[in-house]
């Protein structure tokens, strides 16, 4: 019964979660892998997962945490050996949307996660707060600072290529 529930959630939520995590990670393969890992963790403990009130929120939180861990390891690898980053994979998006994804990469993780989950994944401030494990006020502050920083990055890119 537990595994059937995991599979039902997988069929209902996988695509949506990948879309949301792509906004956070800026790489489609990364998004697929962290979302898959979240489902693997749910499937490893199906009885516990069955008791979760909001399965999709739980999976999204796990996926964001996995993405953070993987990013930290890559950053440390950069510091140790200046290792190469894998090539990024993107869905078929307009130039403007890709510019936003690129610019988000230039922001600190905290701001990037908040902006991506609220403005691109269409989560409420409260949902973003629950996903990130921070108070709603903190999310609002990150959104405010993040918008300003993102606008500056996008403006700078426009001026560079004008």
């Amino acid at each position: 019964m537990g595994m059937e529930w995991v599979q039902q959630c997988f069929e209902a939520s996988y695509r949506r979660l990948v879309g949301q995590l792509y906004a956070v990670c800026g790489d489609l393969t990364e998004a697929e892998e962290v979302v898959s890992e979240a489902f693997v963790r749910a499937a490893a403990r199906p009885a516990a997962f069955a008791r979760v009130d909001n399965p999709e929120a739980w999976l999204r939180t796990v996926a964001v945490n996995v993405a953070r861990t993987r990013h930290r390891r890559r950053a440390i690898g950069l510091r140790l050996h200046v290792a190469h980053e894998p090539q990024h994979r993107h869905p078929d998006l307009s130039t403007e949307r890709l510019a936003v994804v690129q610019a988000l990469r230039g922001l600190p993780a905290a701001q990037r996660e908040a902006l991506a989950l609220h403005y691109l994944a269409d989560l409420s401030v409260q949902q973003v707060a629950e996903t990130l494990g921070v108070p709603a006020g903190t999310v609002k502050a990150r959104l405010s600072r993040g918008r300003a920083a993102l606008a500056e990055l996008l403006t700078r890119e426009e001026e560079t290529h004008a």
Partner: peptide
Amino acid sequence: FAGDVANGV
């Protein structure tokens, strides 16, 4: 955004 990405997954 996220929904449009999801449609192609």
